Computed example of a mutant assay.
Amino acid sequence: MSVADTKTISFARGAPSLDIVDIEGLKSAAVKAFDADPGGVTGYGTSVGYVPLREWIAKKHGVHVDQVMVTNGSMQADAFLFDQLVKEDTPVIVERPTYDRTLLGLRARRGDLHPVTLDDDGLDVAELRALLESGVRPALAHIIPNFQNPAGVTLSMPKRQELLALAEEYGFVIFEDDPYHDVRFRGETLPRMLDMDGGKGNVVYASSFSKTICPGVRVGYLVGPAGLIAQICKAATNTYIAPNMVAQAIVHRFATSGALDQSVKTVRFALNERADALAAALRKHLPDAKFTVPDGGYFLWVELGADIDVDELLHAAAARHVAVVKGTDFLIEGGEGSLRLAYSAVKTEDIDEGVKRLAEAVHAVR
């Protein structure tokens, strides 16, 4: 096979490959949604989202329905929350590294960002406490507690408890951004901080069906204090009247039919296999690389060393038909020798070849 014919192996996008998406289940859910509620599916609806799905989410989380808002993906939920809580120079805690779109959204609102180091067991809570004791008074702490994007690490139970205590003591909101909770493939499931907070209002929770069904549905949601959700719903009404009723109705039928539970099992199995294959390939082809093998989620963070220029590496990798994302995209500063590898979209049989090509690119630029 010529170089021109070589298939690109992409570790760049955090999305499931088509072979683990339940296409038939989605088609069936769409038919059921249109048959059962043609008026609700085809009408404008309201800014709170498709009401039956809103009610299903409220029941799932054990909260009152007026604490839930269904959105066009969880990124839109993020944007609405940031618009409510973050103004110019508002102090905001972010993880270091963190999701690149979070940084873009907060920078666009000109928030005063304070990155706090991530350890293998999540946010360095001692570093956060020192920051708070120095006088910083954040309105918000953005936390991805499970299989963090991009680092793949999970916030430990003791750190969840400490973080909640700090939020109550210093009066800031924990934004628990949690799209990966249901895609744990090994280890013990930890409770959501939303549940641990006991209704005190210190936590606003966001999640998505992109990782458990498919990204194309673009359905996410927020759970928070009823007053805050009402303010956000008012802003949403002024923005788009209502989100996508068709997609939300399909998700509702998919969830209530039992197809969602089966989809989660399929996704977990595939992710487990792919994460293990990626770790094995890295040990084989890049034995000096440092990484933590995740227990769920889509991503693995790789430290290649200070002698690697990731901008140069990106081009060398692309020339060898492998795509990655450079670590500098996820940090305000630093990350020059790091990469985020998304294993979710790469079939197991392609992973070793992809890492082999990446290793060739690393050796070329080193």
Rank of each mutant, 00 (worst) to 15 (best):
Leu140Val: 12
Ala167Gly: 04
Leu128Gln: 09
Val173Tyr: 00
Asn146Thr: 15
Gly171Ile: 02
Pro115Tyr: 11
Glu168Gly: 14
His142Pro: 01
Glu127Arg: 11
Pro138Glu: 05
His114Asp: 02
His114Phe: 12
Ala165Gln: 06
Gly111Lys: 04
Pro179Ser: 11
Arg129Thr: 13
Phe175Asp: 02
Gly122Leu: 06
Val173Met: 07
Glu169Pro: 01
Arg184Asn: 14
Pro138Asn: 10
Gly187Arg: 02
Asp182Ala: 15
Gln161Lys: 15
Leu190Thr: 08
His181Phe: 15
Asp120Leu: 06
Leu166Cys: 12
Ala151Met: 10
Arg184Asp: 04
Met157His: 11
Met193Cys: 01
Arg110Glu: 14
Asp120Val: 11
Leu131Tyr: 03
Ile143Ala: 10
Gln148Arg: 11
Ile144Pro: 00
Ile174Arg: 07
Ser156Gly: 01
Leu155Glu: 09
Asp119Pro: 00
Arg186Met: 09
Pro158Leu: 04
Gly135Gln: 13
Glu169Gly: 01
His181Arg: 15
Glu127Lys: 09
Gly105Leu: 14
Arg129His: 08
Ala141Lys: 08
Ala130Thr: 15
Glu127His: 12
Gly105His: 13
Leu166Phe: 06
Ala130Asn: 15
His142Lys: 08
Val136Gln: 10
Asn146Cys: 12
Ser134Asn: 09
Asn149Tyr: 11
Val125Cys: 06
Pro179Met: 07
Gln148Pro: 00
Phe172Arg: 09
Ile174Leu: 14
Val125Ala: 03
Asp120Trp: 00
Arg110Tyr: 09
Tyr180Phe: 14
Leu166Thr: 09
Thr154Asn: 05
Pro158Gly: 05
Ile174His: 07
Leu113Thr: 11
Met193Thr: 03
Leu140Ala: 06
Pro191Ile: 02
Phe172Leu: 12
Val153Asp: 03
Glu127Gly: 14
Ile144Asp: 14
Leu132Gln: 11
Pro150Trp: 02
Glu127Asn: 02
Glu176Cys: 09
Phe172Cys: 07
Leu190Asp: 04
Leu166Asn: 10
Val153Thr: 15
Tyr170Asn: 12
Ile143Gln: 02
Ala151Arg: 10
Thr189Phe: 00
Asn146Lys: 09
Asn149Thr: 13
Ala108His: 11
Val183Glu: 05
Ala167Gln: 06
Pro145Ala: 15
His114Val: 08
Asp112Glu: 13
Asp120Cys: 00
Leu123Val: 13
Gly171Ala: 03
Asp119Gly: 11
Pro150Leu: 09
Thr189Asp: 03
Pro179Gly: 11
Met193Glu: 01
Leu164Gln: 08
Ala139Asn: 08
